Amino acid sequence: MKRAVSTLRSRRAVGYFCTTTSSSSPAAASEAWDGRFRLHKLRGQHLLTNPRVLDAIARRAALRPGDAVLEVGPGTGNLTARLLASPAERIAAVEIDPRMVEAVTARAAALGLAHKLTVIEGDAVEVEFPEFDVCVANIPYRISSPLIAKLLFGPYQFRTATLLLQKEFARRLVAAPGDGEYNRLAANVRLVANVRLLMDVSKRDFVPMPRVDSSLVEIQPRAIAPGVDLHEWLAFTRVCFGQKNKTLGAIFKQKRMVMELFSRPRRAEEHEDGAGDIGLGALDDDVSDEGNDRSRDGAVDFSAEEVGAFKERIAGALESAELAGKRPSKLSNDELLRLLRLFNERGVRFQ
């Protein structure tokens, strides 16, 4: 559910904030956590409290006069206070915890900057975002992949996203072909955006302290959209990276794989509504297709001749691309796109 904080609630929150902080300066009441309510680790509630790191994130976001900023997971407002003090025109913060909503609303009011802040109470994966130029987020690690998918494959147009992520996840996100950490997540994000690592952040800079360190990354959507159907691409990379340690030839010669791809066009005709919105978990690469022997309605109707001809089309595409002996984790997106086009030209569809 999406709900903007009301004026009355904001006034109550100001009183709450002012009676529960001991600092005489609202701007300095700040980063230190006074324990006024319990933080839930299982929900990913870890407050960033190091002022130098908070300043660095706000600086790296490179906000401009007139910018509309989307902040996901403002918590008690440590980073929000800096965004409000920036040249940005307005900040929209999405927060699921009503206690945090009150805290960040009170923080803005105490700073005299409540007019620049709108707080949307709800799940960031589910709510509709307002228009924004820049996204800044210290997000719960468990929603990292769905949030990035929503930003990059949703209807939003923005200049940059500066995200604080789990360090291991960030390394996977910025990995390049041939790196040990290269994966489907990196391939899918690279298709539509440029990503770079900005800095690492110690777990000791958070309260309560998480078990792992974090990293700050910058994601810039590409100005030119890729010339490929995104549903088709995401389904294709799911197949390739589901068994990324095998060569493409070994992946696509499996009888199970041939039958799966052969049956897809027929199933698509029967279920025309199957090409809906891109799933928010579509970037993940941790789902393997190995051992998946799902039954397929209508498979008994396929003749051996039809299946054999289809298998030859798959082999022909791999031969034309000269990629049969290559592993997906070693290939650039250009090489993968070339193979996908060759498959599609031969009637091999993945969506």
Rank of each mutant, 00 (worst) to 15 (best):
M1Q: 11
M1F: 07
R3W: 08
A4F: 02
A4S: 10
V5H: 03
L8Q: 08
R11G: 01
V14K: 05
C18T: 04
T19R: 11
T20M: 07
S22A: 14
S23E: 07
D34C: 14
F37R: 02
L39T: 03
Q45G: 11
A58M: 02
A61C: 08
A61V: 15
P65T: 08
A68S: 15
G75C: 10
G75A: 09
N78S: 10
L79I: 14
R82A: 00
A92P: 00
R99N: 09
M100Q: 01
A106T: 05
R107E: 14
A109C: 13
A109N: 03
A110D: 06
A114T: 10
H115Q: 10
T118L: 11
V119C: 08
E121C: 12
D133S: 10
C135T: 11
A137C: 05
I139A: 07
P140F: 03
P140Y: 06
S144C: 04
L147A: 07
L151M: 09
G154S: 12
G154D: 15
F158C: 02
L163G: 04
K167D: 10
K167W: 05
E168N: 02
F169C: 02
R171L: 09
L173A: 02
G178S: 11
N183C: 13
A186N: 02
A187T: 05
R190I: 00
L191Y: 05
L191A: 10
V195K: 01
L197N: 00
S202W: 08
D205Y: 06
I224L: 13
V228S: 02
D229Y: 03
E232V: 11
F236S: 05
N245W: 10
K246D: 12
A250H: 13
F252C: 03
V258C: 08
E260H: 14
R267K: 15
I278S: 03
G279E: 15
L283E: 02
L283F: 04
R294N: 12
R296I: 05
A304V: 06
E306G: 12
I314H: 05
A317N: 05
L323E: 06
G325Q: 14
S332C: 08
D334M: 08
R338P: 01
V348L: 12
F350W: 07
